[in-house]
């Protein structure tokens, strides 16, 4: 993550610069080759909700993740705040405040990072027809019998609220 934060402006400014390009390319591979998720449960709820936004509106995959992630972490704040705070300390150098403060600041920093890349983080930035999206996604998850998250604790009605927060 630190590598991505570090090389992002360089890669965007000059993609012919080999060293940041190589760091970026290998970081992308390492981010999802199975290694870093060993020994811990994975969440993937952001992806599952994001996939629906691509299926319904054709929004770029990465952008759907940026739309859902901030709402997902705010909605599940109590369950995830310790990890969010640790991430805030390590990746964003947040050293001030309580666990809650650090965790909240980490979400803000993440969203700001996406904005800096030119990535909008609200569904309404991508479509005017967002009304009813949360209900439709909850219905699809219900029909498929899906529960999300690392503990399978997120029900379709939770997904509905998270998507609505992302409008």
């Amino acid at each position: 993550m630190q590598t991505l934060v570090e090389v992002a402006p360089k890669v965007l400014k000059d993609p012919t610069d080999y060293t940041p390009a190589a760091d970026f390319m290998w970081s992308c591979t390492m981010a999802l080759n199975g290694l870093i998720q060993k020994g811990v449960p994975g969440d993937w709820a952001v992806h599952m909700m994001g996939h629906e936004l691509t299926a319904l509106f054709g929004i770029d995959h990465a952008r759907t993740l940026a739309v859902i992630a901030p709402s997902h972490y705010k909605y599940n704040f109590e369950a995830k705040k310790e990890k969010l705070a640790q991430y805030g300390e390590r990746v964003w150098n947040i050293s001030e405040g309580s666990i809650d403060d650090k965790a909240y600041a980490a979400i803000e920093k993440t969203e700001a990072f996406f904005h800096k890349l030119g990535i909008d983080t609200k569904l309404s930035d991508y479509t005017k027809d967002y009304d009813g999206t949360a209900e439709e996604i909850a219905k699809r998850f219900t029909d498929r019998g899906w529960k999300l998250g690392e503990r399978q604790a997120l029900m379709p009605e939770d997904a509905q609220k998270i998507v609505k927060m992302a409008y």
């Binding site: 999802l32 449960p41 969440d43 952001v46 995830k80 990890k83 890349l117």
Partner: peptide
């Protein structure tokens, strides 16, 4: 998009 995708991949595996 690529940077955002890779970053979120790590988030999904880290925030658990």
């Amino acid at each position: 998009n690529g940077i955002t995708d890779a970053f979120t991949h790590v988030l999904e595996q880290y925030m658990t």
